[in-house]
Design a binder for these strands. Structure first.
Length: 492
RNA sequence: CGGGAUGUAGCGUAGCCCGGUUAUCGCGCCUGGUUUGGGACCAGGAGGUCGCAAGUUCGAAUCUUGCCAUCCCGACCA
């Protein structure tokens, strides 16, 4: 297979697609907008999922599973939520096919098998979950409920892109129920912190924590917190959201509890989610023109070993040496693959594992064994050096940590270089057009202004950063007074 | 969903305008051999409903229509 990649400079979109497909993360499928996640891509997702799952459990959450289908009457109960998702729902209307009498071997929908009530394939699960919670909650003693579910959801997007926006995607959605507003708000913020920690420490992608404006808020939420990441082409990507839902769903589904004073109150809610979209963020934050760059902490494979042999005899000598290296690495919890397949030569393997972003490559031949060394190459900097076999495990372990830190630092430096302040409209437009990235600018706080800015520049307010400093200023568009800056960008 | 483009072997492609033997080439794949420190070489070989369907025609990869998918630009995107 030809593995030549489009460069970022030549065509950024094509580069991204090439990495996904040639790096064997995923493929297009026979279904419009839906992808097949291939074993290498799925292994990455499993590592991300497992780590997030640990973090959810550490913060007191448990997993459960709710149905894929949502009866239409439940779906429409929370009006804003329903309206927000209505335009992108897949709907089940029938439950049976039958043979087509006019066309042998073909099937048609059996008109006799129409459902009494349509079933919506969940675009998100608030409705079915809150309908369920209604039966679980009577007393303040039943609260809080801290549930997460790992699931697939369907959103019938007009235009799809591998990982970034697919019609079906995998995600987790946390849905919690609380007795007080304070507790629910704390939960919302706590989960935002969990997401930020995961994305920064494990995916090595720096994020800005913030709050969405009313325009960008989740349908049915009182407040949407988010983490925003910056991609190498200067576009922003929403990496995760955590919503404070107030009592909206409790009211829509009539979920009340008796408090200590024996008074009925509506339950307070949160929901929060991250999806396979994070893989898109990972790719676009780190990778280069030679291929993917996987952060060691979640890489499907951390180390690959390539033998350089001359003839069968040297091969078995190398195999023996490698066996002990593998043992040492595995004992340190490092994932390692020995690629001694004979159908590709070393140079081909080097290029292949660079494309796949394996953080560390070890090559060794007889020459090295004589000198008790291996050739060690790191993916992030392409640096190669000779390292003693003695103590190799520890060396690799530290190197993996160094790579993790290095790609984070690199992404952070890039992100920080690409946050710029604009104080006039001309400056604002020119920064967006010439530099891309985040533009920090004063905004008068009105949805109308936000819409106008979006219309004229395609930039949206990604968030109002949580740690925002308060300063008086004038809105870049209207000149109206403002108390703080918002973070604008063109986004995925 | 609107505008534009594309679809020929696993991948990349020639042929299409102007219909006519057995659909071109490269990579990859298979067999054997020689190789192996940055994408090996030699010899032989396999692999195609020309995206799918219908139509025009004696004859369709080529012309017409519909559909599907992908890419780009819009609209949409909690």
């Amino acid at each position: 297979m030809s593995k030549e990649l489009t460069t970022r400079a030549a065509d950024y979109s094509q580069w991204y697609n090439d990495l996904v497909i040639k790096g064997e993360l995923a493929d297009h499928s026979a279904v419009r907008g839906c992808m097949v996640i291939k074993p290498y891509g799925y292994a990455l997702w499993e590592n991300m999922r497992d780590q997030l799952d640990r973090m959810f459990k550490e913060t007191g959450h448990v997993n459960a599973y709710f149905p894929l289908f949502v009866p239409k009457s439940l779906f429409e109960a929370e009006e804003k939520n329903a309206e927000g998702f209505a335009k992108e729902c897949a709907i089940v209307t029938h439950y049976r096919l039958k043979n087509d009498p006019d066309n042998k071997g073909k099937l048609i929908v059996d008109p006799e098998a129409k459902l009494e009530e349509e079933l919506i394939i969940r675009p998100t699960s608030e409705a079915i979950i809150w309908n369920t919670y209604k039966g679980w909650i009577q007393s303040y003693r039943d609260l809080p409920i801290l549930i997460n579910q790992w699931a697939n959801v369907v959103r019938w997007e007009m235009r799809t892109r591998l990982f970034l926006r697919t019609a079906e995607f995998l995600w987790q959605e946390g849905h919690t129920a609380h007795a007080t507003k304070e507790e629910a708000v704390d939960e919302t913020k706590k989960m935002l912190e969990v997401y930020a920690e995961f994305v920064e420490n494990y995916m090595a992608v720096p994020v800005i924590k913030g709050v969405k404006t009313a325009n960008e808020r989740f349908a049915g939420a009182e407040e949407t917190y988010c983490i925003e990441a910056l991609m190498q082409d200067g576009k922003a990507l929403q990496a995760g959201t955590s919503h404070f839902l107030g009592q909206n769903f409790a009211k829509a589904f009539d979920v009340q509890f008796l408090n200590k004073e024996n008074k009925k109150e509506y339950v307070w809610a949160t929901s929060w989610g991250v999806s396979t979209r994070l893989i898109g963020a990972l790719i676009m934050a780190h990778s280069d023109d030679q291929g993917l760059i996987m952060p060691p902490k979640i890489a499907p494979l951390q180390v690959v070993i390539v033998p350089i042999y001359k003839g069968e005899e040297s091969k078995s000598v190398i195999d023996d040496k490698v066996a002990s290296i593998i043992k040492e690495l595995k004992a340190l919890g490092i994932s390692v693959k020995y690629d001694n397949s004979d159908h590709a030569r070393p140079g081909w393997k080097f290029a292949e594992y660079e494309l796949k972003g394996v953080p560390v490559r070890i090559a060794l031949g007889l020459r090295d064994i004589e000198n008790n060394v291996v050739e060690l190459a790191r993916r992030d900097t392409k640096e190669k050096k000779s390292v003693a076999i003695e103590g190799l495990g520890t060396y690799v372990k530290l190197l993996l940590e160094d790579i993790q830190q290095n790609i984070y630092n690199r992404a952070l430096a890039f992100r920080n270089e690409n946050i710029r302040e604009a104080n006039t409209w001309d400056e604002f437009v020119s920064l967006l057009d010439t530099k891309a990235g985040f533009v920090s600018a004063h905004w008068d706080g009105s949805s109308e202004t936000e819409d106008k800015i979006k219309e004229q520049t395609k930039a949206t307010i990604r968030c109002i950063p949580l740690n925002n400093k308060q300063e008086a200023g004038k809105c870049v568009l209207t000149g109206n007074p403002s108390t703080q800056r918002a973070l604008f960008a063109r986004a995925y």
